[in-house]
Every structure is written in C-alpha cells, then in structure tokens.
C-alpha cells in the first residue's frame, strides 16, 4: 500500500487485572493509506471505539505500536510524542455525541481548534465560516450547541475535525444521532474529504446502509480485526496533494 497514513501493529488493550481482567482489543493490526476511507464495523463491545481512541492517542494501548505518517508515535502504553500536540496538528476526531464546547458558538467551536494550532483569529474565523458553509450550517454559526439540532451539532463537530486539515480523521459512529439521509450525507462527506484532501479516514459505524461509500470495510469482533473487504480504487488514485474543501 502506497502513502501509508496509519499503521497499527498488534494493538492490545487490557482493562483491570486478575479476576476483573477484560481484553478489549487483541492484536489489532491495520494499515490505512492517505486518501483512503475505511469503515470499521462490528457488534457492540467488539473493541472498535477502543481501537479508535488508541489510534487517536486518547486511550493508550497496553501493547502494540502505532505509526502515523510513518512516524512511530506510540509503543505500548508509552507515547513517543506529545499526544495533545500531535492530535492538534494531525488528527481530527469525531465522537458519537457531537461534543461541542457549550460556551462557544458553532463558529467559535470550529475557530478555537485552529487558534489552538496557531492560526490567527481572523484567518481562523474566515475558514470556520467557510467550513460551516461547506457543511450547510453557515446560518447557524452564531448558535450555541443547545440551540442546534443533533444533525447540526454533528456537522459542526465534523467542521471542527476538518479545521486544521488533518492527515488522519477518526470518527466514532458519527451518524448515530442522524436520520438515514443525513447519515449518508455525512458518510459521503468523509469519503469526499479523504479523496479531495488526501486524509486517511477511519469511521466506526453500525449503519450498514451507507457502507457502499467506503473504500475498505474492516470487521472487528471480540477485540480482533478479522477481515478487510476489497480495497476500492480511491486510495490508489490519491495523488498526495491537499485540496481545500
């Protein structure tokens, strides 16, 4: 696979010890290329979110290695880089719940991610509005999270994840709060971002109706990544450039 963005080798996560020991993830290995949009499916408790938070440097694994952009960033539970700084620069994370900062408006929620990354306030504001326009929530830019619908909140969260043009986008059931058509729109958006921006996208989902938008589908069960469907052409056609949305 060319232009590998994410590599995981033998990721294992064990919670507790002795009688209370639970293995949430076992020897999970995966490679995702730049420009590839991957779905990770599986029953509840299969370890999908554990895998995603490990790759997002949020919840370190007990064992295994994570490389992002060819750089070893995690070896076992030990981070080899500052996880927060790395996440800010390279990873966009979208959780099941929209997870917006309550005291900031929709526009500020997107803007803050860029300002934390050193962008000027003016430039960050302009790009935040651009992203909200792109995601169809421009008119809700001044609304606070409780004033937005679930779908609007989720789209703002996606805009925030895209704000710093990350090379890796991780989404944990991003369409759970959305109806069928809107859920599909979001999935197609991820595919578009992957293909247009060259980002590596991993989406954990239960929504089997939208699986056709993904380049590759992996299944996870009992903490093990069991299978990968045939890769579609998108990854191999990625040219490596970063296009603005």
């Amino acid at each position: 696979m060319r232009n590998v963005a994410i590599e995981t080798h033998g990721l294992t996560k064990v919670y507790g010890s002795g009688h209370t020991e639970v293995v949430a993830m076992r020897d999970a290995s995966l490679c995702v290329a730049h420009g590839q949009c991957v779905a990770l499916i599986g029953p509840s408790g299969a370890g999908k979110s554990t895998f995603l938070t490990a790759v997002g440097l949020i919840n370190p694994p007990t064992a295994g290695r994570i490389l992002i952009g060819g750089r070893l960033v995690m070896e076992g539970p030990r981070a080899l880089t500052n996880p927060r700084t790395f996440r800010r620069k390279h990873i966009g994370y979208i959780s099941q719940k929209a997870n917006l900062i309550r005291f900031l408006t929709a526009r500020e929620n997107v803007q803050v991610a860029m300002e934390l990354n050193g962008e000027s306030s003016r430039a960050a504001r302009a790009r935040a509005l651009e992203l909200l326009e792109y995601l169809g929530v421009r008119e809700r830019a001044a609304g606070y999270p409780p004033e937005l619908s679930g779908g609007e909140q989720q789209r703002v969260a996606v805009a925030r994840a895209l704000a710093n043009r990350p090379s890796v986008i991780l989404a944990d059931e991003p369409t759970a709060a959305l109806d069928g058509p809107r859920g599909r729109q979001v999935m197609e958006l991820f595919r578009r971002v992957a293909h247009e921006q060259g980002a590596a996208v991993i989406v954990v989902t239960h929504d089997h109706r939208a699986l056709d938008v993904f380049d590759t589908i992996y299944e996870m069960e009992d903490g093990v990544i069991r299978s990968g469907a045939a890769e579609l052409s998108a990854a191999s056609t990625f040219s490596g450039g970063k296009a603005r949305p």
Partner: peptide, 13 residues
C-alpha cells in the same frame, strides 16, 4: 470539566 476534557481532546495545551 467536560468542556475542558474536550479542549484537551482537540489538542489544547
């Protein structure tokens, strides 16, 4: 606290 955790999640120092 949730907002602070979220800020950390998006990379706030």
């Amino acid at each position: 606290l949730h907002d602070i955790a979220l800020l950390k999640l998006i990379g706030a120092s």
